[in-house]
Amino acid sequence: MTALATEERPLNLVPDAPIMRATNVTKKYGLITGCKDVSFDLFPGEVLGIVGESGSGKSTLLNCISGHLNPTSGTVEFATKKRGLTDMFGLSEADRRRVQREELGFVHQNPRDGLRMRVSAGANVAEPLMNLGNRHYGNMREDTITWLNRVELDIARIDDNPRNFSGGMQQRIQIARNLVHGPRLVFMDEPTGGLDVSVQARLLDLLRHLVRRSQLAVIVVTHDLAVARLLADRLMVMKNGYVVETGLTDQVLDDPQHAYTQLLVSAVLQI
């Protein structure tokens, strides 16, 4: 098996230097507030969960901090390899796109948004490598096979079209596509939404495994507290665009302080 970019990456970052810092991020759609005064530091290898009901501003926040949506006020800084901690929206569009392409990943809730449905699964996984300038077919093919193995997909189906895969498989292709180029921070928007429970469990297991072995920082948005408990080190609870509570995952879930968090935790169905 070839060494992958994620494994080769030297971890020469100072451990207490954040990989991402958001300061008072606010996004308004006219009079409507998307998210308001959100601040956090994220460190390499850390998984931050953002939980809250629908309409609480989770996705708006995710779009802002991933560089897709310019916040109305506040700053989003990302520690790029070249420049160190840099304001994402202070970069030129070309540089921002380069950072997004080379150092970030974005797993969409619906795999159709994150995959090219008209090209094969293999080409979907290899595309980020080509975007990085890789021009050797054989090497890319090998990396693709390695990653399809890691996400437990049948290698014989490497050249099938994504639409011929099940929803859970599509999501795994999308995950492989977003990890193959060795990003340093991956955003996940409800990565297990719309999947049945058993597929969800395996996918979560897989994600946890991949995240732990590659020292990747992850920001995962979910409305599912079980997902948050399994994946996240730290949690931010959002309501009406505000962060109402933040802390270590077990601390927030086992001893919720804010009334809304208490409601959220008690609302989980027990079997």
Partner: peptide
């Protein structure tokens, strides 16, 4: 950003 063009050849 011409990585995409190579997807076709791939």
């Amino acid at each position: 950003e011409y990585g995409l063009q190579y997807v076709k050849l791939y």
